[in-house]
């Protein structure tokens, strides 16, 4: 019995962690290539709106999820043109994408407010899913969760076990030298930005198709920003992103349970917890790393023009 309760808690934690994990993994690849994309929140919320709208129109969760990823990708293409091709300031461009994404998502989702869909189907394997204790946790999730975990392994393998991954990390650390070596800095960065955008869009689609299967304006509620913090927190490593996402997912679930239980604390204080926890996590991380240099990719956020 208690084992089943524990499983239920873990299942909700994984569900809360998945959008953070997918978005943060995409951003990790972008930042490893040396680009700081602050538009994650906008790409996520646009993915949520587009994913839900397309899923309602087509009746297919899969098509909706792909459309969500596509919407994030399209917005990140604009970001790529600005920052990679035109060498615009990355911080300001990212903020522009967030504002633009929030506005566009409102336009896309306007006629879908208040609608509900069935949440994305969960895996069922007779015998395994009913297995007491861990069946639902391991064999009973929806496709987004499995995709998220596949991304962790896939990105870790790509970055540390392939030549292209090495090139991407090298470009993120020193774009001038890699350019001199003949690596195609801008092409790699542009592709990384597109990948990050698609991940953010997919993470948003998870929110509106599986986590809470409806569309509400600005429903991402800062998750894109928390994903950005998660990348820093994980010191740009995929497995740590996964662990960090679980930690934040846990904090979110804890907050929801605390809201229900009351505790005499005002609801606003509990709602503020994830944001305060993010700040606290960043502070603790920095405290633990007083000596030794930063682990951030060395060229992160610096613009590159091939003529220099």
């Amino acid at each position: 019995m208690t084992l089943d309760v524990l499983q239920m808690v873990l299942v909700t934690i994984v569900a809360a962690a998945t959008p953070l994990m997918i978005a943060a993994l995409g951003e990790l690849v972008v930042e490893r290539s040396g680009v700081l994309n602050l538009g994650v929140e906008g790409m996520m919320v646009l993915g949520a709106a587009t994913g839900f709208a397309v899923a309602v129109e087509t009746g297919s969760t899969l098509v909706g999820a792909l459309a969500g990823a596509g919407a994030g990708l399209a917005l990140s293409a604009l970001f790529g043109i600005l920052t990679v091709v035109l060498a615009a300031n990355q911080v300001a461009s990212g903020l522009a994408m967030t504002i633009l994404g929030l506005g566009l998502s409102g336009l896309v989702g306007a006629s879908y407010v208040g609608m509900k869909r069935e949440p994305a189907p969960h895996l069922t394997i007779s015998g395994l899913t009913d297995f007491p204790g861990i069946g639902r946790l391991v064999f009973g999730q929806d496709a987004f969760v499995y995709a998220g975990f596949a991304l962790v392994g896939g990105i870790a393998w790509f970055l540390w076990c392939t030549r292209a991954g090495l090139a991407l990390r090298a470009i993120g650390d020193d774009h001038t030298s890699t350019h001199a070596l003949g690596l195609q800095v801008r092409k790699v960065r542009f592709l990384a930005v597109l990948f990050g955008g698609a991940c953010a869009g997919l993470a948003g689609a998870y929110l509106s198709l599986a986590y809470t299967p409806f569309w509400a304006p600005a429903m991402t509620a800062g998750r894109g920003w928390i994903a950005l913090a998660l990348v820093v927190f994980a010191s740009w490593r995929p497995v740590r992103v996964m662990a960090g996402a679980m930690l934040f997912g846990g904090a979110t679930v804890l907050q929801l349970h605390a809201q229900a239980a009351g505790f005499g604390l005002p609801g606003q204080a509990l709602s503020a917890l994830p944001y305060l926890a993010t700040i606290l996590a960043l502070v603790l991380l920095s405290l633990g790393r007083r000596q030794g240099g930063s682990l951030a990719p060395a060229s992160l956020g610096r613009v590159f023009t091939p003529f220099r």
Partner: peptide
């Protein structure tokens, strides 16, 4: 919708930076 204004302002910032 009011969101059109917000989208317009975001687009404007993007274009200014570009």
């Amino acid at each position: 919708p009011l969101d059109l204004t917000r989208a317009f302002q975001g687009l404007l910032l993007a274009l200014v930076l570009g």
